[in-house]
Amino acid sequence: MKVAYWPGCVSRGFTSELHGSMAAVAPMLNIELVELDRANCCGAGVIAEHSQELADTLNARTFALAQQEITQGADLMMNICSTCQGAQSECQQRLDASAEYRAQVNETLSDEGLEYQDGIINKNFLWVLVEDIGLDKLKTLVRNPLTDLRVGPFYGCYIVRPTDRLDINRAQPRDEYLDQVIEALGGTVIDYAGSHKCCGFPIITMNKEASLEQAGRHLADAVDAEADCLVTPCPLCHLNLDLQQPMAAKQVKRELNMPVLHLPQLVGLALGLSPEDLGLQHHIVKPTAVIDWSQAVVGGVGGW
């Protein structure tokens, strides 16, 4: 399949290993990425906090650019950031609700010759994996099943709430997809208290103690549940859980050492890519447990 691909900003800045691992994994899943390189930041909810119209117009611009790719054969728009998914879905809800409002927004976009038509399909990579590629297909592609790897899913907020806006329901349990993917890749899902809670990132500059306390608690819960690593579909969660982990550990006065993987990295490992190909060496918390595991498996398979 072909997707109009919005990588987001953080995945090209502080977590560039995310963008890199997505690029490495996509061809193995037969996904062609058409990068929206002229598109702009989704605003992460912060721009909307300042001005809704500004956020809506900026995202309408990104959607319009994606729709140009969709008319040229892309199946849908895809992102790799929960926060983008949440912030963009929120704007889309307003844009799709009213033709009159959409006309106002399009008026601003018309200077650039762009127009957003309602009803774009914009999905996080996690949703694409389950809904468009399919777990059965994914299973057939696994070369190194994550056997005995204990993985804690970390969903964060923007991709699981609010459920009505994100079309999460019993028929489409998008808030369970990470669990399903871990299982399809052969791993063991770890149940721990923080899986659907907030990593605290949005208040890191506003109330640092509270922010780090959140990250620290979830990581500690995962440690107590004996997870080998966490996996997240959100680079902002990754910032608080990995980049800030040394500070979070200080805040909760515990040793944590919990590796946190981006979703495409976990998929990549199971599809047979090496930890280096997936940029795991760039993480702040060394994913030793994961690498030991992958080398044991690779050794066992006799490939390398």
Binding site: E53, D111, E112
Partner: peptide, 23 residues
């Protein structure tokens, strides 16, 4: 920032009143 983005800021931030679509 692409010109289009700058233009959006100009137009929207230049409004006299915040235009808030409340669902």
């Amino acid at each position: 920032a692409p010109e289009g983005v700058k233009r959006i800021f100009e137009v929207v931030e230049g409004r006299d009143q915040r235009n808030e679509f409340n669902l």
